[in-house]
Nucleic acid binder design. Structure first.
Lengths: 254, 254
DNA sequence: TCACATTTGTCCGTATGTATC
DNA sequence: AGATACATACGGACAAATGTG
């Protein structure tokens, strides 16, 4: 699995990089080249240390880098060890969350960017959407309906809806940015919910159910407009929908 | 996801947190709360290990996490050690770069997304730009001019121009996405340059100088249009400019 | 249920490289 | 140039977790 003799032409600088960085980069390279794929198991730490001719601590620090890059996941115990995984979108979202906490991003900035961004995505989706995308979106709606039928909030489904929309644009960059936005928004909404729960009684819950149903209606309308290729109508619904979300977050913009 | 008796509650794992993760989270918390600020020096590894009552390796792995999160930087030598630093935007761009490799984002997807995104940014910049932003942009132009006067390419300045533009929008989310796009683009351009250098003689260099000068003219035009609040003209120049970039990358779209 | 092997998590001691004074 | 302080790295050891027989 790990080539001992490297016929690579690229001469890596010797001193500037630390050992664990080189090991991390080497494994990344194998993943990017498709030699290692998600699901593949890497050798254990001791075995990696033996093959790379380094100590176990060095391997561990390399694994920390790969773990936080969303490229490998580590499981303990027998039959455990490092496994190639593609969690890179989740890690980007996590870093975005950090950036938000460092006051680099305000709620206002995020909602403005989201609105503009979703309008762009919608413009492309009208042309690029396929039958399979419509099925996914419809399934998402059904799941949300079922939850709301049982008086449960469908927040995860509402978030997923917008990511599915980005996927329908067939542009992976759009998907990455949308996933980041929605991850941030989810974190924000959770904070808002916590504030509400601690301050209000459970009358607020029925209020939230009503809003969740309202969101569902917007989502259904947007799908309908997309299917009928009515871009203006879709954009208008989207703007109304996002305006409501914005108003809901407004009190928390300090 | 799967019909389960339990509602969608994200169960945070209790014991699965490793010691170095808790240490990393604790230091992050101090940074987010403003108790630790960029520039502040953290105790040395041994001292941190003593205070947290853990081994040095545990501290080291915690520092790896914080380093890759763009929250601390580590300096070697005497008077070195971990320092609070805000490099979070750079690390997000770096992860986006990984995502580009993993998700196989095509050049076509990236350029399309970039064009749409820059138009949105431009729309806001017209209203939000301040005197200091214009000064920064003008300084960027001057630097590029000076380099081109010495028959040097001004690629870094050209890239910085667009990031400065995003900063002028006063929306940090725009800055993050723009920085990510430009980081990707820089990597692509370097690949293209390598291909050219290995295939062609240095006649290609004068060709690139000419293109670089051309880019500069576009950038100057865009600034001028922004100052005079002529949005349509600015957008038109931007579209022409990006179309040229796109044509240049066209041969490398597989 | 009970060992047992495997692998990660953690700690310690030691040595080396490196930057600053 | 030497001393100092720190990160970097190695190897050994044991504990904890996890799957298997």
């Amino acid at each position: 699995m790990f080539p001992d003799s490297s016929p690579t032409i690229s001469f890596t600088p010797l001193k500037s990089k630390r050992a664990f960085e080189e090991i991390s980069a080497e494994i990344k390279r194998l993943v990017f080249q498709g030699i290692l794929k998600p699901g593949d198991k890497l050798p254990s730490e001791t075995e990696l240390a033996r093959q790379f001719r380094v100590g176990r601590q060095t391997v561990r620090e390399a694994l920390r880098l790969l773990e936080l890059s969303g490229i490998v996941a580590i499981q303990k115990g027998s039959n455990g060890g490092p496994v190639i995984k593609d969690r890179i979108l989740a890690t980007i979202s996590s870093l975005m969350h950090d950036a938000f906490h460092m006051k680099k991003i305000s709620i206002e900035e995020l909602t403005v960017a989201r609105c503009e961004f979703e309008k762009v995505v919608l413009k492309y989706v009208i042309d690029t959407i396929e039958e399979s995308d419509i099925k996914s979106l419809q399934y998402n709606i059904d799941k949300a309906k079922q939850k709301l039928g049982n008086n449960m909030l469908a927040i995860e489904e509402h978030i997923e809806f917008h990511i599915l929309l980005a996927k329908a644009s067939k542009n992976h960059f759009f998907v990455i940015v949308m996933a980041s936005i929605m991850a941030l928004l989810r974190a924000l909404l959770c904070q808002v919910e916590e504030n509400l729960e601690s301050a209000n009684d459970n009358i607020g819950y029925t209020e939230r159910i009503i809003r969740s149903r309202n969101t569902l209606i917007y989502h259904e309308g947007i799908i309908h407009a997309i299917i009928e290729k009515k871009q203006d109508e879709a954009v208008q619904l989207l703007e109304q929908h996002l305006q409501e979300v914005r108003n809901r977050l407004q009190p928390f913009i300090k």
